[in-house]
Nucleic acid binder design. Structure first.
Lengths: 297, 297
DNA sequence: AGCACCTGTGAGTTTTACGCAACTATTGAA
DNA sequence: TTCAATAGTTGCGTAAAACTCACAGGTGCT
């Protein structure tokens, strides 16, 4: 089999010209000048060694050979167009499912979901709760939004959005009894934590320059929660002091339901968008762009 | 319908890679480097926004989307290849019929037909006699070889090969009675002519600087023939003096069967290859090249 | 570990296609 | 007949696409 196909761009020009019956019309469809199409047709004539079109008055008509060629090439291009548009639709019409831990979902994403859908309607976004806080497990989601610290596994692509900031938060009533200039004063309260973030309190204490001993003593009076979401609800309810990602308590701080008297500190973790291999890169990219923009404001 | 096809060269690279299961093999088939194919595949990934291939060990395998695309695109390219090779075969396998007046055919072309067929076997040459000496009538032949003088009609392409030379020829026996230095001496013989070339004798006489009166007198003793071929046979047989294209009597002059004591003169006519519109340009070109080469020697 | 084999990528180069504009040819109307 | 309008062709300079080369990185076999 000698697969010596003619130049494909010439074939495309031929197909369009034959179908539309005019060089100018074909050029219009292909978004080029009629001169460009004319050249392609000439090159095809030379390839086959025969004229495919012949002049008929002001326009062109197919020769015998041209008709024979068009009968097959027209079908082939129709199939090509069909297959490509089909795949494109499959890719673009499929809903984009974004997985997300419950806390992040409830406290940050859901309040912004309406605007996100309006900004990127072509995503047909669907959100699902990812049960584990760590997005390592490959799910059937198109992407996973979560906080996590490097290093990341190599079999997924990770788009970093912003550094994680954490802060110690508590209800205004509890805050009255504390001294904002002395971080250690919060140790008079019960320390709230979640199993998924055992390193949160030591991290915070170290960043504040507190002695390990003071922390260890305080850790005797703690309350654990299964999920970050419950932890924050508990903090709002005044059960104690919690360490929370600043992003998730931003709204509560603004409304005054929570206070963060000792500021916030950056951690090695990042808010990331995890992409399984072979996911739709363009849609993920547009989502990431929107998220970055949203996080900036 | 938005016909936004991806770049066709990228589709071709995809099709070949999917069919052969390897970038390197596809590159080999397409006569490019594997790097070139790799780029094309990447551009296609970006066009659709999804990966079409995924790495599997040392090679690649199609993703789900890739398979869907290949099922249609493979067929489309197969059809494209089929249609193009079909047309090419139609064009190249069809016998090339060369029309030619009987005299030229018998006295010049047929003796060279073997070598011509050996030199250009792909022409699958067939020769036919064109009944009229003038090739003006459009026949179903691929080309017509004949002597003719400009101007030529505009609806056919005419390739000029060599100027026509004519000479007065007669048998050696008749020549004895003539004086080579006095052209008028031939008028003692019977003048042979054909209806298709009524201007031959006046032309010759004028070129030799003979008086019109002498010619007119001689023209009273003439013998006509329907075809140039018979005319020349008659000259060989010693029936009289004939005007013949030098090309057609070359062999007879060499063998001594005919003499041309008064040399030859050029006429406005040319030996031409007439091509109807839309004939196979490449094959006609190769035939013309061979003819020119042959006429030179 | 070493080697053979396969694919991906950055840099520079060649090839191709294109736009522009001028030219030819045909048609239909003034 | 002349004139304007429509269509296709072509020379020339430029812009973009595709390619080669060389190297990097990964995989599987011995």
């Amino acid at each position: 089999m000698h697969h010596s196909l003619p130049p494909l761009s010439a074939l495309r020009a031929f197909e369009a010209t034959a179908r539309l019956g005019s060089v100018t019309a074909a050029a219009d469809e292909l978004s080029v000048t009629h001169g460009a199409v004319s050249r392609q047709l000439k090159s095809l004539d030379e390839h086959f060694g025969v004229a495919l079109f012949t002049k008929a008055g002001r326009g062109l008509v197919l020769t015998h050979h041209g008709e024979r060629l068009q009968s097959g090439v027209g079908d082939a291009f129709a199939k090509l167009r069909y297959s490509c548009t089909l795949l494109k639709h499959e890719v673009e019409e499929a809903p984009f499912t974004l997985a997300c831990p419950g806390s992040l979902l409830a406290r940050w994403l859901i309040p912004r979901l309406d605007r996100l859908n309006q900004a990127l309607p072509e995503l047909k976004l669907q959100v699902v709760v990812s049960d584990s806080e760590q997005p390592g497990t490959p799910s059937d989601a198109s992407a996973t939004l979560a906080f996590s610290a490097p290093p990341w596994p190599s079999d997924v692509e990770v788009i970093e959005l912003i550094p994680e900031e954490i802060c110690a938060v508590l209800s205004p009533r509890l805050a009255e009894a504390c001294d904002a200039s002395h971080p250690a004063s919060l140790f008079t309260n019960k320390l709230l934590y979640t199993a998924s973030r055992p390193q949160a309190w030591p991290q915070w204490a170290a960043a504040q320059g507190l002695e390990t001993a003071a922390l260890e003593k305080a850790l005797k009076q703690v309350q654990g929660f299964a999920h970050l979401y419950y932890l924050m609800e508990a903090a709002v309810a005044g059960l104690g002091v919690a360490i929370a990602p600043r992003l998730l308590v931003e709204d509560d701080l603004k409304s005054g339901r929570l206070l963060a008297p000792w500021g916030s500190i950056e951690t090695p973790a990042r808010l990331c968008l995890w992409l399984p291999k072979h996911t739709n890169a363009r849609r993920s990219e547009s989502l990431a762009t929107w998220l970055r923009e949203e996080l900036k404001g």
